[in-house]
């Protein structure tokens, strides 16, 4: 009896010790993995604030002794200036977000809460377009835009992005609306609400995480897209940030200006990071909507 009592605290200390070691190991491994993923971002940001000479110095150093905005100033001299390209990117990304949400929300609501002939076939057809490689239909898309007189137009580019964003967005919104109990719609119908009121006042606020997810994906994809923007835009003043990054070069031989390029990368990725971090709470809830009751 005495022995048993005496041994108990020792066992507990051992267990606690083991737990601490396991936790420390977990933190160490997680920290290393996080560092691995964060390094390119940190590297870009750090390099963007170095003087031009230090950007190519050997041996390289992460943090410079001299803080400089020289790279950002040089970026202003690239083509029409980085602010113009950033403005174009903002217009295209916000336009894509607005149009995608405007179409995907009612479409997802329709697929989720209404039954109509050919519903499954139509949904499968919409989903099937996700399997078509974007690059394979660039030529017909170009011809369509030309016919619509929308080539070399930011609005035309927005339409292209919305087209490719819609299948996933409709799928997301359908899932988001599926997770809303049918009884809420029925209660609202009994309360005398119209379909529009039900969608606006009941369904949409509840399915907001889904909308946030759709909006975020639309923003990130259109913000970062390169190939379509390169092909459908020919006027230098209408280029978006990813195209600007390719054009960041200096000298008559087109040597890449690494310092300015890092500044450009920083300018391009910061809005994405801010948006992702601010919406991640909704984003996770949106993706898992309907997974469990």
């Amino acid at each position: 009896m005495t022995l048993a009592n005496a041994s108990k605290p020792i066992l507990r200390r051992d267990e606690a010790g083991g737990e601490t070691v396991r936790y420390a190991l977990f933190v160490l491994v997680a920290g290393l993995v996080a560092l691995f993923f964060l390094m390119p971002i940190v590297w870009s940001i750090a390099n963007s604030f170095k003087p031009a000479a230090e950007a190519l110095a050997d041996p390289v150093s992460l943090v410079s002794s001299a803080f400089s905005l020289e790279n950002y100033r040089r970026l202003e001299g690239v083509g029409a200036g980085w602010t113009s390209y950033a403005a174009n990117s903002v217009v295209v990304a916000l336009g894509t977000v607005a149009l995608t949400v405007l179409v995907a929300v009612p479409a997802g609501y329709g697929f989720s809460k209404f039954r109509f002939p050919g519903q499954t076939l139509l949904f499968v057809l919409v989903m099937a377009t996700m399997m078509i490689p974007f690059q394979s239909i660039l030529t017909p898309l170009f011809l369509i835009l030309k016919w619509l007189r929308l080539q070399n137009s930011l609005f035309g580019l927005v339409l292209i992005y919305v087209t490719f964003q819609l299948p996933f967005s409709i799928f997301m919104m359908r899932n988001a609306f599926d997770a809303v109990p049918r009884a809420l719609i029925e209660a609202a119908r009994i309360d005398g609400a119209s379909q529009w009121t039900i969608l606006r006042r009941i369904m949409l606020p509840i399915a907001l995480p889904g909308v946030a997810t759709v909006a975020m994906f639309a923003f990130l994809n259109s913000w970062n897209e390169f190939l379509a923007a390169l092909i459908f835009l020919s006027d230098q003043n209408k280029f978006t940030l990813p195209i600007m990054l390719v054009n960041v070069s200096s000298g008559i031989y087109g040597i890449i200006d690494w310092g300015a390029l890092q500044a450009g990368i920083t300018v391009t990725m910061v809005p994405c990071i801010v948006l992702f971090l601010s919406l991640q709470r909704y984003y996770v809830r949106g993706l898992t909507a309907g997974a469990v009751k």
Partner: peptide
Amino acid sequence: LQPGERDIAMVFQNYALYPH
């Protein structure tokens, strides 16, 4: 008639309260 036009009120099994 639509449910809203029937002058009825209903209490649901899962309450169906608007969560937001």
